[in-house]
Design a protein around this nucleic acid. Sequence first.
DNA 1: ATAGTGACTGGACACATGTCCGCCCGGCGG
DNA 2: CCGCCGGGCGGACATGTGTCCAGTCACTAT
Lengths: 229, 229
Amino acid sequence: MVAVRLPAENRNPIRTRLLPECSPRGYGGHMSSQVTSPALRQGLNARQAETVQNLMAAGLAELRAVGHEALTIRTVAQRAGVSPATAYTYLSSKNHLFAELFWRHLNEGADGAPAGSGATERLQATVRALTARIVAEPELAAAVTPALLGSDPDVARLRLRIGGEFYARFEAALAGPRPAGEPADPAVLGVLVLTFTGALLQAGMGLLTYDQIADRLVSAVEVIMRGNE
Amino acid sequence: MVAVRLPAENRNPIRTRLLPECSPRGYGGHMSSQVTSPALRQGLNARQAETVQNLMAAGLAELRAVGHEALTIRTVAQRAGVSPATAYTYLSSKNHLFAELFWRHLNEGADGAPAGSGATERLQATVRALTARIVAEPELAAAVTPALLGSDPDVARLRLRIGGEFYARFEAALAGPRPAGEPADPAVLGVLVLTFTGALLQAGMGLLTYDQIADRLVSAVEVIMRGNE
DNA sequence: ATAGTGACTGGACACATGTCCGCCCGGCGG
DNA sequence: CCGCCGGGCGGACATGTGTCCAGTCACTAT
């Protein structure tokens, strides 16, 4: 950890790595031509956006090819056709790369809120959808669990977003379809999120395979909801 | 990660780091004079056991003093008064140190199985006891979460033990006092363990403070048990 | 007393990580 | 056409990690 070398006040003036918001999620209007309203894209111009795009694609490819342990920012940079120095201007660390990739991966596949008559049913659908999404990139899943525990500020930012996303999805499923669902019980919601993250942790540790966690979680939802509507 | 450099077949012939079982747990007979029945202590003789003891104490002290990010095996070795090379004969990595310290810490404080009339009550007592134990060494808690995700074989060993310990404690609380408790429902048990590890993960990420997790978990137990006896 | 055993040592090694800095060069405004 | 601006480059650096090996020294058995 080099980050400890300096007392954290005279380093990194404000330089949080800037990456385009760019979640290709839902409203597909503003990402058509790559240059529309550059100011909205977190201050990245077209050239920079392309570099970032290359880095992300290369990161995923490298991850699939050699796994998260052997991957280094330098090999990713090479695969993306940029220099390591350039890569480091966008990615503060390996952990940051993994977190960013995971965030993007999570937000692909535009699953609308699950419809269904009962909360349990909707929650189980949500759980299945999420785990399916995660299981689709096993190496990414294995990489992101330790990565999200890093102390890097860019990681912290992503971690909040990812946690919030889980929370939002479970809340949507618990409360029911939009116009007038019942309000979600925060205690129940909390347990659901805790259980889900617990499953991810156990999978990350190798105590559960990613195949098992879907079934475990479906069963968990049933147990939890048994006394709660 | 140097562990990847060689294909893992011609390194470490069998040399899993040996540490004394030594959990000062319960039956306090066999650890009085430091030399009784050396064979039982995982093949460590008195001198080695003392070195290990020094390393563990130094590790904990260093952890408290500078935190887990700044700690290195070399500083721990120095504090323990041994050379880094020696430290590495017992500790395969920083992660291994943290896992070992956590395991020992968890097994101090000889809390017997919680008595109580209802399963919910016993589970809440268990949850409180565990989190209190963990919160007693916040730096250790912060260190162990990422550490347990490591790929080091020594870490894997500890991780299984720690997971098993959690499982056992929840099972004991769920099933009730020894001679004739009702058998624990494995689905409920599974949810409890997932929720607990989820809470640890969230605390490790900084989404929850370690102070909050006790309350969250007590509430979680109530929610989970609401429909299950 | 002597030789041997084995824990510990010192120090160099092969990587990896993230930072810094001077330079290049292509596009854009004058 | 010229000059600047700024993204990207090359490469050295400081630091950390885990490994390896020849050598030392106290204890032990003969």
